[in-house]
Amino acid sequence: MRERVGKLTASPWLYLAPAFALLGVFLLYPVTNTVYLSFFDRRSEVFVGLDNYIYLFTHPDTLVVFRNNLMWLVLFTGATVTLGLLLAVLTNLVRYEAMAKAIVFVPMAVSFTAAAVIWRFMYIYQPAEFVQTGVVNAVMVALGFDPIAWITTRSVNNFALIASGVWMWTGFALVVISAGLKGIPTEIIEAARVDGATETQIFWHVLLPMLRSVIVVVAVTLVINSLKVFDLVYVMTFGNFETDVLANRMFKEMFTFGNFGRASAVAVILLLAIVPLMALNIRRFRREQ
């Protein structure tokens, strides 16, 4: 059935053209091209099939990269969500809530580059016989431990980097979860109190279930960020000392090793890791419509 429309005079394409021209040139085309390039050699001249992927999944250097991203995914997301949730619930109980939230939120406004400098400075290490000028090691020594070279010691440096990420993003989790918390009607909490629930029971049986969807949104955002993490690693270690991650590895493949085939393959792996989250987003969006 053809509808005759007297209403429309302007073409939607006039309004969409600038956006989709840019999206096409800078996102849609490059993404497909990168997938294509990942099957070619370092100069994108010779087709090599899956060689780039096979290399990435078998070489010890790059297997460490996957391990590190997995650590980021689990520890960074887990710690940030937990801290954000805890602080959201706790700050909600005090009068200086706004100030406390602002303080935790400030790092969100700062660049990862500046944050990396800040944390390198926090982690400064001097041999045990010298005075410690980094806060973390000064505290360690004061508590009677030996100072640790946080950035270069392979057993701890990933945790140190992840901690700096948690410092940056907890404010985000806190603000979003706190907004969700404000959305829970007072009556529900009061009803639970009247029913005799303790504050702990209220947290586990009322608040947590009602915050579920907000927490999922926060967690998805953090997972995506953990997969894409770049600046912190680039500035703090450049991926040395077994702290490399996918995004930084791609940068290295491009500019240090000049291997555009492998760099593309790293990017494609990153995309594949994110596709399920993309599907989740689309599903959520369609449900909301």
């Binding site: 059935m1 509808e3 005759r4 429309v5 007297g6 209403k7 429309l8 005079t9």
Partner: peptide, 23 residues
């Protein structure tokens, strides 16, 4: 008013058929 499209039939104001006239 022209805020919805007519599926079938005609509407006139005065002697003017307004099906395809913008609002």
């Amino acid at each position: 008013a022209g805020l919805e499209a007519i599926s079938e039939g005609e509407i006139y104001i005065g002697d003017d058929k307004i099906n395809d006239v913008p609002p």
